[in-house]
């Protein structure tokens, strides 16, 4: 496969930007909350310069579309919308939960599944379960993503003993998640954050398959949609 693929993921505490150029991956990854707006664009400039490319060389842009911090998700989405519009290139939106799951599977080759929980505050987690695709080795969604109380999560057919537990939700609600699942996981990574390398890995086959959207359709997925209450009629 040839081409140049950019990846931007800022939905959590990590600002992670990657550039895949003809099989070679470069990443800038920094855990710097509140700095994403400044760092994300600068990382793109740095990676392009290191590769000796200008922005016009980019063929498609992958973006972590959430769930995560509302503002964090929008930083990547807005930046990528502007970039995709100006370059007239397609966008490949990828679940931030899947990016985390892919990271867990990448780090632990012997593990066949990842149970991903991001701390969603308000006593809830963003939840998704992923199985390793036997053909591609990539994380494949085994459940619908959801925002819910830790006591209500389900891993469907996945046995926690065979899985890696990934994400800040395991740090905040590890005990409750274990109770809900009936067991702990083989490995737990409560400090894991999404990484652009994994976003690129998930986006590459989709780019090849032409599974991409226009800039206007590259939109956040928040999962939590009840964010304001209407005043009671007096």
């Amino acid at each position: 496969m040839s081409g140049v693929l950019l990846a931007v993921e800022t939905a959590t505490e990590a600002c992670s930007v990657g550039l895949w150029v003809e099989g070679e991956t470069r990443v800038r990854h920094e855990v710097a909350p509140r700095e994403h707006a400044r760092l994300s664009g600068r990382f793109i400039e740095v990676l392009l310069a290191e590769s000796g490319l200008t922005a016009s060389a980019i063929d498609a842009i992958a973006v972590g579309r959430g769930p995560g911090s509302f503002t964090g998700v929008r930083i990547a989405i807005s930046l990528v919308q502007g970039l995709a519009l100006s370059l007239d290139r397609p966008v490949i939106p990828v679940s931030t939960l899947a990016v985390l799951g892919q990271g867990g599977l990448r780090r632990h080759e012997g593990v066949e599944a990842a149970l991903v929980a991001i701390d969603a505050r308000m006593g809830q987690v963003y939840w998704g379960a992923f199985a390793r695709d036997p053909d591609t080795g990539l994380a494949l969604a085994a459940t619908d993503e959801a925002v819910l109380d830790p006591a209500r999560v389900s891993a469907e057919a996945i046995r926690p003993q065979d899985a890696v537990a990934v994400g800040t939700g395991w740090g905040a609600h590890g005990a409750a998640l274990q109770v809900a699942l009936g067991s702990g996981c083989a490995i737990t990574e409560p400090e894991a954050l999404p990484h652009a390398e994994d976003l690129l890995a998930l986006a590459r086959p989709r780019f090849e398959a032409g599974d991409a959207v226009d800039a206007a359709e590259a939109l956040p997925v928040y999962l939590r949609d009840q964010v304001a209450s209407k005043p009671r009629p007096r």
Binding site: A37, S40, G41, I44, E45, A55, R74, I75, S78, L79, V80, Q81, G82, L83, A84, L85, S86
Partner: peptide, 8 residues
């Protein structure tokens, strides 16, 4: 951020 992306 949209402006930043457009400028890039």
């Amino acid at each position: 951020l949209t402006a930043r992306g457009l400028g890039l």
